[in-house]
Design a protein around this nucleic acid. Sequence first.
DNA 1: ATGTGC
Length: 479
Amino acid sequence: MLTRIDDYRWEIPITYKPGMRVPGLIFSDEQMLRHIQDEQSLEQVANVAFLPGIVGRSLAMPDIHWGYGFPIGGVAATRVDDGVISPGGVGFDINCGVRLLRTNLTEREVKPKIERLLADLFINVPSGLGSKGKIRLKGNEIDKLLLKGAGWAVAAGYGEPEDLEFTEDHGCLKGADPDKVSIKAKTRGTPQSGTLGSGNHFLEIQVVDEVYDAGIAQAFGIEEKGQILVLIHTGSRGFGHQVCDDYLKTMGTAVRNYGIDLPDRQLACAPVNSPEGQSYLAAMACAANYAWANRQCITHWTRESFSRVLGKSPRDLGMRLVYDVAHNIAKIEKHQVEGKKLTVCVHRKGATRAFPAGHPDIPEAYRKVGQPVLIPGDMGRYSYVAVGTEKAMEETFGSTCHGAGRAKSRSAARRSISGADVAAELAAKGIAIQVANIASLAEEAPAAYKDVAEVMHITDAAGISPRVIKARPIGVIKG
DNA sequence: ATGTGC
């Protein structure tokens, strides 16, 4: 099924399955391929290549694993003129993403207070499955949040206007239309705004452990080993899930109405320019904005807790936002395809935008170095900051990986790993934890994930997102 | 990921 192009690129030829419109391209190496060879995820890469209007290649990042329709770690660009949009190419957790804060603090200052800090954060940042937040949205306030995203949160007193400058799309995707969102989605979303959620969502206090490119790190506000960072990983909670659910039904009907031929029902889609396609994009933008508002509120409470426990103002603590980037989203972007500038719908599902230096869509302060790419690992090992490149623009529509990728399913992890053992392992490594649900400790165990260092080795060597720094956790909040 | 499920 796979043809080796070079050490880090593997092709699924267009002839693999009749109906593929473009070849598949997987960024991986021999070692990583052993993890995925027997899974259905490669079949999903081939299936995505059937989508009407797909251009370039059906792409997969090194952290690819099986998902709904599209693989997680999949990227596909479709022509806006005559191509389709597919909710399965975005995922259930619309605008699941990562946000990184820098601080002036060092490990030495924080370590003695880590337990108090975690305890304060755990109370201040609502977390856990089905958890409700402390924001009370009344009347049509939810619609304003859906229209304005992170800007709503800042206007409501959660964070600083400067935060928006360092958020992808300033934390607000254009074209959001709350009228395209079901009452059910709004009902689920209203009490959950400003909550971390569960599963692999987390808030981590980390220490800079290795610096690969001091110049770029410096531009991002990361100065040295030992510096404290905060990484926040969450999405659009039940709201985005409901939006996805609603539109999968709509798209199921659209596939029949427009006579779209697909190898898998889960790839349900509609022409980008159809009423169904446009409605999904408008609802998806609402969910993206919900997630950005969510991460913005959590940022505010994080600053509050640090300030309270360390007895300094957030400004003195230097808790500036490095960046906030989505890894489950579809975006209308212009890309060079076979020598021509084309407007495409880039589906990034478990894939991070990685725009190069000079791109107008990245913050002015980073224009000379490129977009920060935030890659969470697992709670026992490390996470990375990388940077977007021109090569990513050429080869992957400006995209890269999004994390470690699971090595064991949730159920397999529960069967083979004990939560108590994980707690002991983390304690032995000096990593403090606060968990809403003890069962999630086994599911989220380091052993349930692949080594994110292997993933980053590939994206670095392939040139689509070179490493800038590595950070290790010293305190973890899990939903 | 998610009030784990039609």
